[in-house]
């Protein structure tokens, strides 16, 4: 097993109100999703290998990964649509393979391709879906439909893609789910619809101990919303950590007067990227300690530690992993 994990200089203890800022009651609750040793192969192709993943209850967890990393397969396994080749999944304490129907009562799922019957109107779609859920709330449904300004009499084929996604969100939320699963659903949405969508997800978090799981490419959009992030690469989880921990551990150092030993730099496991900028070097490291920031680096002087966006961190981590293989 070969996994490069984020080496934290100070371990994060969730039970204290420190990183993640979950109240103690929530932090000690069992995980919303717990995956151990998961593997999935289709014939000879191995899509997921020895995956361990934990999503704390009440968190907003973002699963990042390149196309083909295995995100959609993972979600299908989580919902019980596919069966694992090996390993264990417990979602809200249930096994998706055995208790799929009960799980789908408690989970709101919005898939990438938003399949719906285009001959049905918005109203017919809602009336088609609602009797199956025991916790369906007519008030929530009405409130959401009004907020999104959806025309109940319009047929689904007449709706824009953004409106279809909003309809899917109504269906996913109106039955008071404990866990909301979003698979790349805002791609192709215009900015306004996307903002409405995200705002509804944020509002839904209030006081309900609801967990949100995103699988997405739109790292820029996700960065505002999530407090945990997991990076999937080549079927394995590269790392998972609270976003703030990640952002405080992965920084870009501006260094002057360094020995230009490129090989040593590349070999060092904590150096993700190294590039020159005039006479200075910009080194992306993954073990930055805010308590005791480094003053010297490879013989040079550290002038500044620059914050990186989640997207930059993701790109650097994946690039390092790919260079290693």
């Amino acid at each position: 097993m070969h996994r490069q994990s984020l080496s934290l200089s100070h371990p994060i203890d969730l039970s204290k109100g420190d990183a993640g800022l979950l109240s103690p009651a929530i932090a000690s609750a069992p995980d919303a999703l717990r995956i151990q040793g998961l593997a999935k192969s289709f014939g000879k192709t191995s899509v997921l290998k020895d995956l361990d993943l934990d999503v704390p209850r009440g968190s907003v967890y973002a699963l990042l990964g390149r196309n083909g990393a295995g995100k959609s397969t993972l979600i299908q396994l989580m919902l019980g649509i596919l069966q694992p080749t090996a390993g264990q999944i417990r979602m809200l304490g249930l096994d998706p393979a055995r208790d799929g129907v009960e799980l789908r009562q408690r989970v709101g799922y919005i898939p990438e391709r938003l399949p719906m019957y285009d001959w049905m109107t918005v109203e017919e779609t809602l009336r088609f879906v609602s009797p199956h859920y025991r916790n369906w709330s007519r008030e929530d449904e009405t409130r959401l439909v009004t907020t999104f300004r959806l025309d109940r009499t319009k047929k689904v084929r007449e709706l824009s893609r953004g409106n279809i996604a909003l309809l899917a969100l109504v269906i996913a939320m109106a039955h008071d789910p404990e866990l909301v699963l979003l698979d790349e659903c805002t791609s192709g949405m215009d900015a306004i619809a996307r903002s409405e969508f995200d705002r509804t997800v944020i509002d839904a978090l209030h006081g309900s101990n609801r967990t949100v799981f995103f699988a997405s490419h739109q790292i820029h959009e996700i960065e505002r919303l999530c407090d945990w992030v997991g990076i999937l690469h080549n079927g394995r989880l590269l790392l998972q950590a609270p976003v703030e921990t990640l952002k405080s551990s992965v920084k870009m150092l501006r260094v002057t007067g360094m020995d230009k030993d490129e090989n040593a730099l590349a070999q060092s496991p904590n150096v993700l990227k190294a590039q020159t900028s005039g006479r200075e070097w910009l080194i992306t490291v993954q073990d930055y300690d805010e308590m005791t920031p480094p003053v010297k680096f490879f013989g040079g002087v550290v002038k500044e530690a620059i914050d990186l966006t989640l997207e930059e961190i993701f790109v650097a981590l994946v690039a390092k992993e790919e260079a290693r293989i």
Partner: peptide, 16 residues
């Protein structure tokens, strides 16, 4: 809650 909704940001960030 109000600020999280207005800025479309995770409430934990606002709380922090």
């Amino acid at each position: 809650r109000e600020l999280a909704s207005e800025l479309v940001v995770n409430p934990n960030t606002i709380a922090h």
